[in-house]
């Protein structure tokens, strides 16, 4: 780790005014410190935001829930409101990382964790995400864990979060404060595809700080499922994950939300496939059609083409599990 200065503000405005070109905010630190040990991140200043008043979970007047950015992943997953009304979110969080990491990692930080692409993490090899224009060894290298949707010539990395897959399916909103004031960002517009700017994981501007995540009232508590497929049973990143949420009335789908993890630079949604499910019976044939639609245009590389069929099967299985009813 390189030397850096350290500040611990207690007010949001103070934190933002301290932010300079070589600053990073730190909360849980579980990803940032890891990247600093690898010299992927070399900040000159860390701004410790753990003393900011962003630790509450509250119901909103609109019937949803506002989650402070500093709520730990563990406290969020085990909060009574989340367990009861948004079991999809609780399950996704508990599918990720380890108990120790979930005790430290923050809600805001989970959105900002960076890809676990081996080449991004290895500062001795080229990587367009680390150094623009240097190249992408993953395209012709070890790409088992890489993207099959939305990738670019420049970058085939995937977003590593489980929590974000559920937040995408639940149409969460990200509350942000920065030098230009406050704004609300729809979850689908928060993360971005790599395109020709793979160094940018998301749409935050310099110095902007996530203050909260808002969930709308619809939590799909009766019919949701989070399915995570990985190389070992626990404590591994997803090869493919699916957050599936349905509203079903008399066997007919009234509303559908499907988000995929482990397949793209951001949690993947396909609203055309979701819309096409509305009015259909909640049965395998409809699920298979949705799965095909979602993976239309997918393309793999030498070691990860299996993810295309795996994703389709995972979507069908997750929708089937959601139809059967949210598991306890």
């Amino acid at each position: 780790m390189n030397p850096f200065s350290y500040a611990r503000p207690t007010r949001i405005e103070e934190a933002i005014s301290l932010f300079g070109p070589q600053s990073r905010y730190i909360a849980g630190g579980t990803n940032l410190l890891d990247l600093m040990k690898e010299n992927v991140e070399r900040p000159e200043q860390l701004i410790d935001i753990t003393q900011l008043p962003l630790k509450s979970i509250e119901e909103t007047p609109e019937g949803g829930v506002r989650i402070g950015a500093l709520v730990s992943n563990a406290d969020l997953a085990w909060h009574a409101l989340i367990e009861r009304r948004y079991p999809l979110l609780a399950k996704a969080i508990l599918a990720g990382a380890s108990p120790q990491l979930r005790n430290m990692a923050s809600t805001g930080g989970n959105l900002l964790q960076r890809t676990r692409c081996y080449y991004f993490y290895d500062s001795t090899v080229p990587c367009n995400k680390r150094e623009r224009g240097s190249g992408c060894p993953a395209r012709d290298g070890l790409n088992r864990i890489h993207a099959i949707l939305g990738h670019s010539e420049q970058c085939i990395a995937v977003h590593p979060s489980d929590m974000c897959v559920a937040l995408a399916a639940l149409d969460a909103v990200v509350l942000v404060t920065g030098p230009q004031g406050e704004r609300r960002v729809d979850f689908r517009d928060f993360h971005r595809l790599p395109g020709d700017q793979p160094e940018r994981d998301n749409t935050l501007a310099d110095g902007e700080l996530i203050t909260a995540i808002e969930l709308p009232a619809a939590g799909y508590a009766e019919h949701s499922a989070y399915l995570k497929l990985r190389d070992r049973a626990s404590y591994a990143f997803a090869l493919v994950s699916v957050a599936a949420a349905l509203e079903i009335d008399g066997g007919i789908i009234r509303s559908a939300r499907i988000a995929l993890g482990g397949v793209a630079h951001k949690p993947w949604r396909c609203t055309e496939a979701e819309d096409a499910l509305v009015g259909e019976p909640a049965e395998q044939s409809a699920f298979e059609q949705a799965a095909q639609r979602i993976l239309q245009g997918a393309s793999g590389f030498e070691h990860n083409a299996f993810k295309i069929e795996l994703s389709q099967r995972a979507i069908v299985r997750a929708l089937t599990e959601a139809t059967e009813g949210t598991a306890a």
Binding site: Y6, R8, G28, G29, A74, Q100, L101, N103, M104
Partner: peptide, 21 residues
């Protein structure tokens, strides 16, 4: 997990946090 300690009663990885925090 070899560095697991209990911080305010909760288990964490001591390697991924700064003492000063």
């Amino acid at each position: 997990g070899a560095c697991t300690v209990l911080l305010n009663g909760k288990r964490i990885n001591a390697c991924l946090t700064l003492a000063i925090m």
